Simulated assay, not measured.
Amino acid sequence: MSGFTWHGGRLAEARALYGGEDWLDLSTGISPLVWPGVEQIALDWRALPEPDDLTALEAAAAAHFGVEPDHVCTVPGSEMGLRLVGRMLAMPARWLVPSYRTHGEVFADGAPVEHWDGAAEPIALLLANPNNPDGRMITPERLQQWLAALEQAGGWLVIDEAYADAAPSCSLAREVGDRRRLILLRSFGKFFGLAGVRLGFLVGPRAIVAQARRMMGEWPVSAAALGFGRAAYRDREWIAKARGSLDERATELDAVLARHGLDARGNCPLFRLVEVEDGFCLFDRLAQRAILTRPFEENHRWLRLGLPGDEAALTRLDRALANG
């Protein structure tokens, strides 16, 4: 069970343990709505990525986030950006839990906290917004108060906004600036359904961005990441439709879970957390029906379910929950 509690995915492991081929993977928070333009982009795998393509990608991403391009550094996934931040700040830290396991590995000197009271401390405060796995969202107003307190004490606010594309109102991107001690991490793959591209961004003051660019080098991501990301971020019509569709599907998932006595937690439309008597038992019950979900070692009562991609997938989950 330990492998399944570490992170989502691991379909090969599930097949080996439970058998079957036709699996429904609800173990991740990756959008089931895949950006459709990926099949139309031609890539020249013989050539090195061009600097102009990187510049164009960062301009497209910056416009999407609502910041200037020179506040954006491309990284091969938001997790890599977090690890860069830990090295660059090199200061005592606190990170809000529950959250990603990676957050506990970012800073060498720090401790997890379940709550933070907004004290003026010379620390780096790291949190995810929307949060994973419980979908908690902290309002921008509250985050601005925390940022002001941290800045007063010489600290930093670091926000993992990997899921913010699906819930843009929670983003603090508009507060990014050279005089702000604020760093954001953004993910491409989760919202656009292309996690395998391994593309993310560090967003922050120009000095931090310049330092991160030096650390990443001339070719931080592949030609595919440059091509897919640039075109996808410019596809505003699809982005708007996807957000609406994700909200509708999340509402439908909530209704199915409620019908089976499961109270869904969280406001991020890409996943829901439920609390039951035995999360491992429910995980196993669904896995016996070739549906992969995400259990948690730190809390055996939790189970996270990703968003089913269509009506057939939702119906399959509904039937599996009914046949308990």
Rank of each mutant, 00 (worst) to 15 (best):
E297I: 12
C268D: 03
G155Y: 12
P133I: 11
V106Q: 03
F228L: 12
G266D: 09
P168I: 03
L185C: 12
I30G: 14
W238T: 13
A124E: 04
V34L: 05
A42P: 07
L43S: 07
W6L: 05
E311S: 15
L182Q: 08
D178S: 00
A212M: 04
R265V: 14
L321F: 05
E252S: 13
E161M: 13
V203K: 03
A124Q: 00
G118P: 00
M1R: 01
A128K: 06
D247Q: 15
L303R: 08
E21Q: 12
L84A: 02
R83Y: 01
F107S: 01
R180F: 02
A47N: 09
K190M: 06
V158Q: 08
W146F: 12
E141V: 10
R101P: 00
R179T: 11
F191E: 05
R272Q: 08
D53K: 13
L43T: 10
A62H: 04
A59G: 13
R230N: 10
P130S: 10
D117C: 10
L305P: 02
L273M: 14
A290F: 09
W45D: 12
Y100A: 05
P69L: 01
P112D: 08
L125H: 06
Q152A: 15
L182T: 06
I41L: 08
A47M: 04
A60K: 03
A224T: 14
E275W: 10
E121P: 04
L127Y: 10
G155Q: 14
A111P: 01
A63G: 10
E175Y: 04
A93M: 12
A312Y: 06
D22V: 09
P295G: 09
D52F: 06
A42R: 11
D284N: 07
S171P: 11
L286M: 05
H260M: 03
G196K: 14
V176P: 08
A119F: 09
L262I: 11
L314E: 14
A124Y: 06
A162P: 02
L48H: 05
A153C: 10
D310T: 07
H300P: 12
R10Y: 05
L184M: 04
A47Q: 14
M215F: 02
D310P: 04
D278P: 12
I30D: 15
C73E: 01
R265L: 15
V113N: 04
P220F: 04
R272L: 04
V85T: 13
E21F: 09
D247Y: 13
G324C: 02
I291A: 11
Y163P: 10
A61W: 00
A14I: 02
L321R: 06
A250G: 07
G324E: 10
P308S: 11
T315S: 14
Y100D: 07
G9Y: 01
L184K: 01
A148F: 06
V72L: 07
R301S: 07
A225W: 10
Y163Q: 15
G29F: 13
G324Y: 08
P32T: 06
F188R: 14
L321S: 08
A56P: 08
L157G: 05
G189P: 02
E237H: 13
E275M: 11
L292T: 10
G177K: 00
T293F: 04
E39L: 01
D284H: 10
L199W: 14
S171Y: 04
E311R: 15
E275P: 07
Q211I: 06
R87Q: 02
G155P: 13
E275Y: 07
F283Y: 05
N132E: 06
Q211T: 03
H300R: 14
R46Y: 05
